[in-house]
Design a protein around this nucleic acid. Structure first.
Lengths: 147, 147
DNA sequence: TCATATTGCATTGTGTACAATATGATTGTA
DNA sequence: TACAATCATATTGTACACAATGCAATATGA
């Protein structure tokens, strides 16, 4: 991040591009494994949330995942088609669609228990560094979201 | 990054999700400004590269941007339609398409000279932190790409 | 010259983001 | 209680990003 405006326009000097590239490349590391289970990355993180806490509405999922309902609706329909979840419109408030794991969806967690560890080893960075990086990212994320 | 496998499957413990979310959110900060110039983020970083070095082939651009030609071709056609670049098939090797900035494309750089600074201020993090973060991301990116 | 591999771009299909819309719930007011 | 206005939620449509495949041009070697 040196001197003048033109330098800051260089691709290599842009924090945003580093984030953009890193995110894409890491996700592409996940892909082979996820695809072998018929999942995209976004579907995977949706399941992550449901494995933590079942029975969430579309918007609650969206809040946790930072995803729009317009993104989630087709995604959830696919997960439902694969019989990993069920979408049930709430009786009391018919605007709300609640999402439940099926037995098959719950069982699937077993296949992924070792994945984070495996991915971390692939990344070739130290644990301390990873924690440090994640902390900084979360702080940055917090700042951005307040705007 | 604590204890057991199930904990590591929690969304909040995933470095990858922090990257994914941060990248998306920061890009969404760029969007209003980019859109007002009729550009997407990907088109913007493509111009960043061309402003640094004009007259690159599609694959050379792809290498710098970590983008596939399948992503670049339609993108470049749009930039050509907006008369910001020209795509010229190489005389000596007709497989190669070279990309040149037009005068209009070169001039456009002026409009973006202050953008990185503005974005950085919005992010609410310290310069030292940003440098630190970018360094770590680039190292991580380097590790990943060797796989 | 023929066969094979490589390289580079284009095309197609899938996934995601965003804006516009529809519909159900809530609140305030008479 | 009834009604209008507002708000909340999900869906649909459109455009973009990306991956996979196919095709054309070139290079290499038999």
């Amino acid at each position: 991040m040196d001197g003048n405006s033109k330098d800051m326009l260089k691709l290599d000097n842009q924090l945003c591009f580093a984030l953009y590239a890193c995110s894409k490349e890491i996700i592409s590391l996940y892909k082979p494994y996820l695809n072998s289970h018929g999942l995209t990355y976004t579907q995977y993180i949706t399941l992550l949330v449901l494995w933590e806490q079942d029975s969430l509405s579309v918007s609650e999922l969206g809040n946790k995942l930072l995803l729009d309902s317009g993104t989630l609706t087709p995604l959830l329909k696919k997960l439902e088609k694969s019989q990993l979840i069920e979408r049930v419109r709430d009786k009391d408030d018919e605007r709300i669609v609640k999402v439940y794991l099926t037995e098959k969806g719950r069982m699937l967690q077993e296949s992924f228990l070792e994945l984070p560890q495996k991915m971390f080893c692939n990344s070739g960075i130290k644990l301390e560094e990873a924690i440090n990086l994640k902390t900084m990212l979360n702080r940055l994320l917090g700042n951005i979201r307040k705007l």
